[in-house]
Computed example of a mutant assay.
Amino acid sequence: MNPIHFFTLGYYPEYLLTGIIIGIVIGIYAFFRVRYALNDSKLSKNKVMIISAPISIFAFICCLNIWSNAAIYTLYIFLCSLFADIIRLIVKYPLKDKYLKFMPKLHKKGGLALILFMIIIISGVYGMNHINQTKYNMTTQKIGNDSYKVIFISDTHYGTIQNPQLLKDSISRINDIKPDIVILGGDIVDERTSNLEMKEVFKELSKINSTYGTYYVFGNHDTQPSQTDYENGNRTFTDTELNQTIKENGIRILNDEKTTINGDIVLVGRSDAEWYINTGRINVSEILNESDLSKYVIVADHQPLDEVKNSKSGVDLQVSGHTHAGQVFPFKEIIEYEGIHSYGEYTIGDMNQIVSSGLTGWGWGIRNEGKCEYVLININ
Rank of each mutant, 00 (worst) to 15 (best):
N132C: 04
D264R: 13
F7W: 15
Q227K: 15
Y76V: 06
G250P: 01
I20E: 09
K258G: 00
K332F: 10
G19M: 08
L267S: 05
A30Y: 11
M198P: 11
E231W: 10
K203D: 12
L38H: 09
Y15M: 12
M138N: 03
I366D: 07
I183E: 01
N243K: 14
I119Y: 10
V125Q: 05
F60M: 11
N255S: 12
E307H: 13
Y15R: 13
P3V: 11
I77E: 04
L242C: 04
N69Y: 07
D190S: 11
L89I: 12
N283S: 14
I143N: 10
N262A: 15
L254N: 01
P94Y: 07
G358K: 03
G326W: 04
Y76H: 08
V284D: 00
I55W: 05
E345S: 13
N39D: 14
E369L: 05
L43V: 08
K101E: 13
I181C: 09
F6Y: 14
M351G: 03
K47M: 14
A273S: 12
E14K: 13
L359N: 02
P164H: 03
N46V: 14
I251Y: 03
A113T: 04
I22P: 00
T238K: 03
A273Q: 10
S194H: 06
P104N: 12
V284Q: 00
V355K: 02
E274Q: 10
